[in-house]
Design a protein around this nucleic acid. Structure first.
Lengths: 301, 301
DNA sequence: CTAATGCATGAGGAAAATTCATGCAGACCT
DNA sequence: AGGTCTGCATGAATTTTCCTCATGCATTAG
């Protein structure tokens, strides 16, 4: 008969086998492999069942290889080492993969940076760098692999939408308690930042879109900050109201550092988009990043 | 940085790699490995991600190895072949495992044989044979690996109980409908079989244990059969009542071929026990059989 | 005799692999 | 050209596998 259930047993059982043979102990091998003793016991039992005979003699103070195990060990160790060398060589031949990201200050600070550690943990071999630019580089140049920028429609060929933003006003929680009504808007300053023209977070326009009465009010004169993060920092301290897009304050809202002042909001016609250099699209670290960031963006979509 | 997420990628991805390289097609490789094309696609993608570069160029009419893949293939094929040879040698050195079971005719017919196909399917490499004996061999001899016999207490060192039998009376369903009352017992014959003395399925004793009035009735004179299976066959045909132990009729009761005539039953002081030759206890096929049969016996326990 | 060490066992849950359903692109065929 | 077919990719859902937790048993040391 001698039917083979399969050509090879699970790889993990072989690694357990070599570890136990080397350390002469299930418990120490388990420690070496960073699993529990239970797992090693199961794996050795599984390999022994697969082969059809005992590989170790279990007795007091550790374990010893049977003749069967002694015959098997050198070949298994050798084959696994060959595999590791060959695969390691193939991997190293590609060099350390790099991932260079370009984005705006507000997106980097409010969205990307807090989440990026997750990607770095999952892909420690990738050398990640983030470049912050105040104005979008019209062409994704050779120093950049992927770019994330706010734009309307699909400007770049192959760009992918990351967010589905609304625009609304936020303030510090204390300010919301003191000035709960719409009229409060005129008793506390309206914060603004210099990028506002480009990113179209403009109080007058926003108010007009909702109430149609933008002419009646004065929207000028509040403090102005150089960047969105600076403005938001002031806002958190209670300096006034800030007009934001939703994807930039999800963390602040969740943590209670900021609250929405009014229920009114405008669906933004600008969205953050992921732009990948077409020639780099197939590289593994870039495919991984794309997969990761689309996943991250999902709940906000 | 170049931190390695793990020493080796999953073994299946390597087998997929060699299969695709050999057959120059994901679909054919999938067929070769007896999985779906989807699985191969995922596995190759996983290996490519692990390595960090493409191994195949996908285009019209099949796939081709990249230089990276070409460099990797010989080493991987070689290492896997070495592993397979070493493990195959170890396995063959043990010879084709045999499992010789000795038991009684009634247990073989009524319990073991119908279930044994399950074990044979799960362990096609094991050469199973069942030896039926009318009297128990007092010593499990060299031609036998395991024995299953009815006995009281733990007669053999290391014997394990398989059943928790009760003794009760059964008959064909028609007979039960016609003679539903206890008095019916005297209008239809009480079947017996020659082994009854040894296995203690004796009408007089059974009746006495329940009612204490065994002297008042006549329990002799029914038809006698040479073996339990023969008697049970007659019983199924409506020939009369049979006194049985529960584990031997579970299938017949479940299928409705037999029914219990009375609710009265006696807990048997004899149980089927599994006896394993101590010197063979560690052999894989015997451990597998022990595990299997204890599992099978559980619901009846 | 009791405690401590080391492996085994089985159930339960977490993680991984596979499949299902579907999409997309190029090649071949009228 | 347009349709159809072949071949690989993708994402969700499922199945399977693997690991861990809790516990048991045997041996040895104190």
């Amino acid at each position: 008969m001698q039917t083979l259930p399969s050509g090879l047993p699970p790889l993990q059982t072989l690694r357990a086998f070599t570890a136990v043979a080397r350390l002469k102990s299930f418990t120490m091998a388990a420690d070496d492999l960073a699993v529990t003793q239970t797992a090693v016991s199961h794996q050795i039992a599984q390999l022994e069942d697969w082969i059809g005979g005992r590989l170790f003699v279990r007795d007091r103070r550790g374990v010893e290889l049977t003749p069967l195990g002694q015959g098997l060990l050198p070949d298994v160790v050798g084959a696994l080492e060959n595999l590791e060398q060959a695969l390691g060589r193939a991997r190293r031949s590609l060099g350390s993969p790099k991932l260079r990201i370009s984005t705006s200050p507000e997106f980097a600070t409010q969205w990307l940076t807090p989440r990026l550690t997750g990607f770095c943990d999952a892909h420690p071999e990738v050398d990640v760098s983030v470049t912050v630019q105040y104005r979008r580089a019209l062409v994704v140049n050779d120093d950049i692999d992927v770019a994330i920028w706010l734009s309307g429609g699909m400007l770049e060929r192959g760009a992918e939408r990351l967010t589905a933003d609304e625009e609304f006003a936020v303030c510090a929680p204390e300010l919301a308690r003191e000035l709960p009504r719409r009229e409060g808007m005129r008793t506390a300053p309206l914060l603004r930042y210099e990028g506002a023209r480009y990113t179209v977070l403009d109080w007058r326009r926003w108010h007009g879109q909702i109430y149609g009465d933008s002419d009646k009010h004065d929207f000028d004169g509040g403090p102005s900050y150089r960047t969105f993060p600076e403005m938001l920092d002031a806002c958190r301290s209670g300096a006034g109201f800030a007009l934001v897009r939703s994807s930039l304050v999800t963390d602040d809202l969740a943590a209670g550092r900021l609250v929405r002042c009014f229920t009114e909001s405008v669906v933004s016609d600008l969205q953050y988009q992921l732009v990948i250099m077409p020639s780099r699209r197939e590289e593994a670290q870039i495919r991984a990043f794309r997969h990761w960031i689309l996943e991250q963006a999902k709940p906000a979509a």
